[in-house]
Simulated scan of single mutants.
Amino acid sequence: MSILYLVGTPIGNLADITYRAVDILRTVDMIACEDTRVTKKLCAHYEIQAPLKSYHDHNKTQQTEYLIEQLQQGVSIALVSDAGLPLISDPGYELVVAAREQQIQVETIPGPNAGLTALMASGLPSFTYTFLGFLPRKEKQKQACLEQRMYENSTLIIYESPHRVKDTLKTIQKIDDKRKVSVGRELTKKFEQIVTNYVDVILSQFDDASIPTKGEFVILIQGAEKAEDTAWFEDMTIQEHVTYHINENMKPKAAIKRVAELRHMKTNEVYDIYHNV
């Protein structure tokens, strides 16, 4: 059996690829990629001759079986995404699981990552972070996800398209209009832009086009400050405690959940007490 290589590729600037990655791509028998048109440009730039095989979300079930058969027959394969690291908000998880189940060797060839690239230059806390990738598209589900995550003491990393970036920032603003965010676009390219400020200021920069809605976006959300002392709410009733958070611009559902977390109670118990059920 051969080796399945997971190869990191540039996220914008074609120079951001390692010597090892180029060497692997030149020597493997096959390259599995999301979009052959995108990978062809990289291969042409570095004179990589390996044949390309399409591997994406819509054909991964069939192609996983095919690629595993090829690996078992001694064909060496490199898996790449259109940009950055395979499997990180990109296809490949099922292939790696299948390869490991068949005792096929899997090697990672590190490379760039858009989320960490934006985090390094954002000026937001970087020691603890949570990668969320792409959020749900439906507003209700997206808001529920953010309401849960934005009260963690961890910088959040989100990928977003230019068509939805403003809507996602508005959702963040609904939850906490005093939260700092950072928006990165065109990372590693000529017109790279990374802007960090309060969410309402960032939205105004979209409105006046100082941040164009062009290119793929990374949104970073500063984590909630961890409370040093929780004794402040001990003399409050449940109703008073929930009302306090609502007055701090938190949605009632999120406020109830937050009170449950702080008091180590079940959410439905806090809900019943607050609503006098």
Rank of each mutant, 00 (worst) to 15 (best):
A21W: 01
A21F: 08
V22E: 11
D23I: 01
D23F: 01
D23L: 00
I24P: 00
L25D: 07
R26K: 14
R26N: 13
T27W: 08
T27M: 11
V28T: 09
D29W: 00
D29L: 06
M30H: 13
M30C: 14
I31Y: 13
I31S: 11
A32I: 01
C33W: 04
C33E: 11
E34D: 06
D35E: 08
T36L: 10
T36Y: 09
T39R: 00
T39S: 15
K40I: 07
C43M: 05
A44R: 10
A44T: 10
A44N: 09
Y46A: 15
Y46P: 13
E47S: 15
Q49V: 09
P51R: 08
P51A: 12
P51Y: 10
P51L: 05
L52S: 10
S54W: 15
S54Q: 08
Y55G: 03
H56R: 04
H58R: 03
K60I: 05
K60Q: 02
K60W: 03
T61E: 14
Q62D: 12
Q63E: 11
Q63A: 08
Q63W: 01
Q63S: 05
T64R: 01
T64Y: 00
T64Q: 01
Y66E: 12
Y66P: 01
Y66D: 12
L67C: 05
L67I: 08
E69Y: 13
E69V: 09
L71A: 00
Q72I: 05
Q73A: 13
Q73C: 14
G74H: 03
G74K: 02
V75W: 01
V75H: 05
S76G: 04
I77C: 02
L79I: 02
L79V: 00
V80S: 14
V80H: 13
D82R: 03
A83N: 08
P86A: 10
P86R: 00
P86N: 12
S89F: 09
S89K: 05
G92T: 00
E94T: 01
E94G: 09
L95M: 09
L95V: 04
L95D: 01
L95E: 04
V96G: 03
V96A: 01
V97I: 15
V97E: 15
V97N: 15
V97W: 06
A98K: 13
R100P: 14
Q103M: 13
I104T: 06
Q105G: 12
Q105C: 13
E107Y: 03
E107R: 00
T108S: 15
I109E: 10
I109N: 06
I109K: 06
P110R: 11
P110A: 14
G111R: 13
G111P: 09
G111D: 10
G111W: 08
P112F: 11
P112M: 07
N113R: 05
N113K: 02
N113I: 11
A114F: 09
A114W: 12
L116R: 09
T117N: 04
A118T: 12
L119G: 06
L119D: 05
L119A: 12
M120N: 08
M120Y: 09
A121R: 05
S122N: 03
S122I: 12
G123D: 00
G123M: 11
G123C: 08
L124H: 05
P125A: 14
S126M: 14
S126Q: 15
S126N: 10
T128S: 14
T128G: 11
T128W: 12
T128Y: 15
Y129W: 01
Y129N: 04
Y129M: 02
T130F: 06
L132R: 03
G133A: 07
F134E: 05
L135S: 02
